[in-house]
Write a protein that binds this DNA or RNA. Structure first.
Lengths: 219, 219, 219, 219
DNA sequence: GATGAATGAGGTTTCATTCAT
DNA sequence: GATGAATGAAACCTCATTCAT
């Protein structure tokens, strides 16, 4: 599913070096954005020469994508833990929201990268990235909802794929609100409070309330 | 609230010309993104010299912001029509979703611009833009929900500001799904259908269902 | 001697307007330098349109030269008063130095313009300007010294033209030290004191001492 | 005292290249002035790409300053040879004047650069440059005069710092008269002779006469 | 494998000058 | 006489990428 965008030489590099390059790359791309990120600077900060960087990655874009793939893995692993459990859908949702709050603070840079991708304007790239990033997540959401549907845990008239989509929209928006300048300000405009100063539990409670009723409402 | 970012000379230009410049600018910025947009191209396509462009706007950024402000107004006016009515909250929501579907197709470029802004990484700019763009919208949402709360139209234990925030997240995500490459692909991954080929009414129905129960659930 | 560099239309303008244009021009040129001065800004600050400015002056350079000519006249008139008197050479020198100190503060902008000219790199222009500016002054100096020579007021073995040249070098350097950033700092480096805080009389006394002996030394 | 204004990459360049860049830069800056000098032209004439130029110098200004510093060193070294001798003040002055005449012809471009700096209008820059350029020279002058004062070689009532200042004014003006268009014409206006055609010895003799009596006059 | 010097196209911005009204 | 909108050449600077060592 995930197409590698690095050269063979990169695989042969030490784990420490691989780690360092991606870490520095994520930092640069997430803080400056793709266009303003400077690959020469990334090389310098990673402690390697620019020549070697091009032995590892064919283009700036490839480095960028590889950084993203690294971020995806982290986020995906966290989601896995939650979705693999036997909890009921609402319990999963609760865990999901709570984990999102915590993760967004801890892995702010990955989220920022994700925001960067979301504004990609090259249709081809955007599509490929979306498949790489969203496929695995979407499966987990849809499957969980479909299962809940089978178990009569949720209202029978919902479309599991669209509901998964709505759910992910809420989670994603929340992530951005924790990490991206624009969305943070937007959060404060809506709520009157800076998201960093708000108690996570208020968010968990309210968002869960929003979702819970969405899923379980019955006439 | 909205700070003007054009020079006086721009005000003096003919309406036709103002229109043309912003239209061309929006097209360029939304299709290429801020960094890759080329002011010389915008000037040429708008039929004016680059020198005159700089008589109208002090910097590329100012032109960009002015394009955005133009987009905001269009979207805001549409929202106004809906929110000023005497309809109940859910009726408003229904109109809102339906209008969003239609508008997103018609004014795709404005939405794309909005997506571009949302990835702004200069904290100061991001905050200013967020205030310009979100304030008015957020007031309308919050007020409508607060009123519904007073009239017992919605569950009494919801936080009107957070619920307004969640609601807008859903609407915004939907807009992006209609217009931005990444989000369009993502929509298809979730639903299995290209959003252009999906009947809007399915989206309206399902999203309304999601929202409706969120707002009105009662034990 | 002085070639006019303005168009006929400028002559026909009101005195008030002529005054204003040159005043504003001198301010702009002396504060920013020729290259960085902006003729559009000068027009605006003088309260006329740029189109009219070009009815008055054919080029930016012509405006500059006309501003300079205006400055020359002011400085030259002051010199005239001193040199036309019947005083002996040293008395004239004393008056000259004292007047220089006072004038340099009052007409700082004219001096700055003069400094700007002195770095002109177009040989043709430089020569023409030098003739316009220096000719009259040099005559006065040389004549005064030649007269003093005839009256045995000064040492007989001095070359009146070279001594006039040296004298003017000292006066000119002093003027710059009062008005131009670089020369002011240089003055402080040499003397340890900011020239604005130094008592003019110390300068007068010391420079006079320097000159006096130069002229009158005898074995 | 002298702050370096080039990047590390410049240090690593071959001496030949460093030489070439500064030489070409000095030529361009001294012939066209700072504003009209063109960095692309300098790069081309120095045989390197513009990109590499910017690897060596962060800005046009930095290249300019580095060219200046190069000129300073040359002039300062020459002064050093003279002032370090055990000669009496007047002997030093004689050597100084004679060397100035010779040097001004040989290193005309350095002197022109100096003239360019002297019209700097950014106060901060001007001050910094003055300190870099004048400090060392002024110490040498003042020290020599102060010593002469101690040895009763000069009149006791002179202020060594102001006299050093006056002396340098004369030398500096002479340098400009050899090298800068405006000052050359001015010299001819005063003396009736083009400075290139005048016998240096006349200048040496007369200027020495002017200075000598200034320093040694006694009642 | 590793280096980093070198390239050069390309974009933003300025401003003297023109000319239709 | 007066206006000011309009022009467009030209300059500084950036950075992805190459390649000789």
């Amino acid at each position: 599913m995930i197409e590698k965008r690095y050269k063979e030489a990169f695989e042969r590099a030490s784990d420490e070096r691989k780690e360092k390059i991606l870490e520095v790359g994520i930092e640069e791309f997430s803080s400056k954005g793709y266009e303003n990120a400077n690959i020469n600077v990334i090389a310098k900060n990673a402690g390697i020469s620019i020549g070697l960087m091009y032995k590892y990655f064919a283009t700036k874009e490839d480095l960028f994508i590889t950084c993203i793939q690294r971020g995806i893995k982290i986020l995906d692993d966290a989601l896995d833990d939650i979705m693999k459990s036997d909890d009921k859908l609402l319990k999963k949702a609760e865990k999901l929201i709570r984990t999102t709050c915590i993760h967004s603070k801890r892995n702010a840079n990955y989220i920022k990268l994700y925001n960067e991708i979301a504004s990609e304007r090259n249709g081809e790239n955007a599509a490929r990235l979306a498949r790489e990033i969203e496929y695995s997540t979407s499966r987990k959401y849809v499957t969980s909802i479909a299962e809940a549907l089978k178990n009569d845990d949720v209202r029978p008239d919902l479309d599991p794929r669209l509901f998964a989509f709505f759910l992910d929209n809420l989670i994603t928006s929340l992530q951005f609100s924790y990490t991206c300048d624009y969305y943070r300000e937007r959060f404060e405009i809506y709520t009157g409070v800076n998201i960093e100063e708000m108690d996570d539990e208020v968010i968990v409670t309210q968002l869960l309330k929003f979702i819970e009723s969405a899923f379980t409402f019955e006439k």
